[in-house]
């Protein structure tokens, strides 16, 4: 499990089990994307200083990778309850009530990411059937946007997983 101080530790303790599928999968994908982003950007600096060429065209990939990283990382953060939130009030509730509130909170998260998955799928479908090309490299745009509904579905699974674990706690 990731142990980093930058994201607030949840002050809210509900006594749930850790996720059965650890978030190491998302962690590894996120790390790989971050590494690639750093290498591409650094490569551009180095190549530009020592040669006359550059691969600025890769920025379309970099931006798309950054979006994918955001969804993957968000999934990991849902798995371990590390999104930034204010638990000042719910921490003061009796644990039983706090668990109930937490289910409501998770339902809200599930609803919005469910909508993003659903309407995102329509969005990708529209890009596919309207034959939209990416504005930079001219590749089919849905190659990039399809990750939004797919990874939102992964986020929904992570949220569902937590709902079950909180219910069992």
């Amino acid at each position: 499990m990731t142990e980093h101080a930058d994201i607030q530790a949840p002050g809210l303790q509900l006594g749930e089990a850790p996720p059965r599928i650890p978030v190491t999968v998302e962690g590894a994908i996120g790390a790989a994307i971050m590494g690639v982003l750093a290498l591409i950007t650094f490569g551009n600096v180095v190549v530009r200083y020592f040669t006359n060429v550059s691969f600025a065209f890769t920025e379309e990939y970099s931006v798309a990778l950054m979006v994918v990283m955001s969804f993957v990382g968000a999934a990991a953060a849902f798995g371990n309850d590390r999104h930034i939130r204010m638990t000042f009030f719910t921490e003061r509730l009796p644990v039983k009530l706090a668990r109930l509130v937490e289910q409501l909170v998770l339902a809200a998260c599930l609803f919005i990411f469910g909508c993003i998955a659903w309407y995102g799928a329509w969005y990708t479908w529209d890009e596919y059937r309207f034959e939209v090309l990416s504005p930079g490299l001219g590749v089919p745009s849905w190659y990039y946007t399809v990750w939004m509904p797919l990874l939102s579905a992964v986020i929904c699974l992570r949220i569902l997983g937590r709902m079950i674990r909180v219910a069992r706690a």
């Binding site: 990731t2 994201i7 962690g27 590894a28 971050m34 968000a74």
Partner: peptide, 11 residues
């Protein structure tokens, strides 16, 4: 470091 910074950025 890569994994943690990816998650923080993602959040």
């Amino acid at each position: 470091v890569l994994r943690d910074s990816a998650e923080i950025s993602a959040v």
